[in-house]
Amino acid sequence: MSEHVTATYRVNSEGRTIAHPAHHTLLEVLREACGLTGTKHGCELGECGTCTVLIDGEPQLSCLVLAREVEGAAIDTVEGLEGRDLHPLQKTFADLGAAQCGYCTPGILMAAKALIERKPTPTRADVCEALSGNLCRCTGYIKIIEAVEWAAALCRGESGARPADASLYGVCKEKPHG
């Protein structure tokens, strides 16, 4: 069997000392050694964004990070997003149907979290750009964009009405874009 290393990772603010194959990526270590299967994978080649996690606060692709290179770094995954309550992003994604099959969702949530922490009032163009490395095949992105904007408003402490309610049903839903 392949060479193993023992390393200590700081995942969702918890230290974990783990032995794992030396050549494994962060994706494999999170899913297989830590049992944190919330982080998904869609290509393992850096082409789809599904496996996005935060490393020292920046979204990175866990499939292209050799695990041992981030020993000691702060690693955040979807499992750490929720405190006693859902994170505002989780609430708005759930309420608006921004997660359909839900497979790309953990990666997009993490990229969105980094965005709204760095830019509390992102423009719609910022949201699209920041998430543009994350593919979603279900939603057509619209609900995701709305959910991020709504969550940003909630994080800013604004009451933040559900964006689409007023005109959701049976009538035209106009959305400014860009």
Partner: peptide, 19 residues
């Protein structure tokens, strides 16, 4: 007829859905 949170919504935004 009313927009409601999908019943599997929370599982999907927390990573709990088991694929």
């Amino acid at each position: 007829g009313t927009p409601f949170r999908r019943v599997d919504g929370v599982a999907k935004v927390t990573g709990r859905t088991r694929f």
